[in-house]
């Protein structure tokens, strides 16, 4: 079955969404911050790609570039392509891009309270896109808003239509935002840390909801997160970012079993685990690099326990390890076979 799937993709010749060799820099008073340095990833319908990274790794900026919501200036995209169904979003005229944004590619944010407008009722906010984009009448749009709220399992949706965001709990607000993002039946949903602000029991509810919706609507989902636990729970593939590059990309199961990059290995070892009380946590020494003054060679070399002279002088290419697995490490093969570490 997978073979057939691959075949149809080849005939069409493109992925649902593909980011190709993207660069983003921010021009500031203090200099140029190179935030994204050649990121490539792709997404197909019905799958979940997790983009994992710490703060400043560029995971959110990539998503903002896809959505076209980067402030330019100060941001600048000197190079790269973002292909949606084979068409480059970066070369598209703004009005055409606007049609794709929200309708084809939609996004939900971490902090639902600040993403929602406090002075309009949630019903009004959910139905706004339906009225302005699809030309629905006020009554029809409200009716559809109730359906959407039902779909994201907000209890007593009809009665709560006229309520304001502050009258909802954190989890319910996140549901409202998901309902808004689904209003136009998007093909791609970008979820930027959707559960980071929520409690664990509520987080489980929201992740379940997102997984159900993705399956029912056959959306492709990009899940941006820093939480290795959430990734293990829901993602199909994972792209690990560090200093604006994807340093490892793999099937989720393969990556957790044997990381092929020292950074991924370090991350996996440094999280305390619920099912295991270790003694001393392993740590990654040092700090993430300053994006204004990136180190030479491999951007991770100042923190890496296996650094060799070549790591300081040459930037490693993304090495193909088979099965869609890549690692940007000079010693990726040794990492994978377990010879290192």
């Amino acid at each position: 079955m997978t073979d057939i799937h691959v075949e149809t993709e080849r005939v069409q010749g493109h992925h649902l969404l593909e980011v190709k060799d993207l660069f983003v820099e921010f021009h500031t008073r203090d200099g140029v911050a190179r935030v994204i340095n050649g990121v490539s990833y792709h997404l197909d319908p019905g799958e979940t790609l997790a983009v994992l990274g710490e703060s400043g790794s560029g995971k959110s900026v990539t998503a903002q570039a896809i959505m076209g919501i980067l402030d330019m200036p100060p941001a600048k995209i000197p190079k790269g392509q973002i292909l949606y169904n084979g068409e480059d979003l970066l070369k598209m005229p703004e009005d055409k891009r606007r049609d794709i944004r929200g309708q084809q590619i939609s996004m939900i944010f971490q902090d639902a309270l600040s993403a929602l407008n406090p002075v309009f009722s949630v019903g009004w906010q959910i139905s706004e896109t339906l009225r302005t984009r699809m030309g629905m009448s006020k009554a029809d749009a409200m009716k559809r808003a109730v359906e959407l709220m039902d779909q994201v399992k907000i209890p007593a949706a009809k009665a709560r239509l006229k309520d304001y965001p502050h009258q909802f709990s954190g989890g319910m607000r996140q549901r409202v935002m998901i309902a808004m993002s689904l209003a136009m039946d998007p093909k791609v949903l970008i979820a930027d840390e959707p559960t980071t602000a929520l409690d664990v029991t509520v987080q489980a509810q929201i992740m379940d909801l997102l997984a159900d919706l993705r399956r029912d609507l056959n959306m492709g989902m990009i899940l941006i997160t820093h939480d290795l636990g959430v990734v293990a729970d829901v993602a199909d593939r994972i792209a690990v970012m560090y200093a604006g590059r994807i340093i490892e990309h793999a099937d989720v199961r393969a990556l957790y079993k044997q990381p092929a990059h020292p950074y991924t290995k370090g991350l996996l070892e440094s999280i305390p685990r619920l099912d295991d009380k270790g003694t001393v946590l392993k740590t990654i020494k040092g700090l993430p690099p300053n994006l204004m003054r990136l180190p030479t060679g491999c951007k991770y070399h100042p923190r890496c326990p296996y650094t060799q002279p070549i790591c300081v002088s040459d930037e490693p290419r993304s090495l193909n390890l088979g099965n869609g697995r890549t690692s940007a490490c000079h010693f990726a093969k040794e990492m994978l076979s377990g010879e290192l570490g």
């Binding site: 664990v200 029991t201 987080q203 489980a204 509810q205 992740m207 379940d208 939480d227 290795l228 636990g229 959430v230 990734v231 293990a232 729970d233 993602a235 989720v252 199961r253 957790y256 996996l268 999280i271 685990r273 619920l274 099912d275």
Partner: peptide, 18 residues
């Protein structure tokens, strides 16, 4: 409800949903 960083646990993990 705490996510466990192990994709293999996905199938047999039993989450009590509140």
């Amino acid at each position: 409800a705490v996510p466990v960083p192990d994709p293999m646990a996905r199938e047999h993990r039993e989450i009590i949903r509140l």
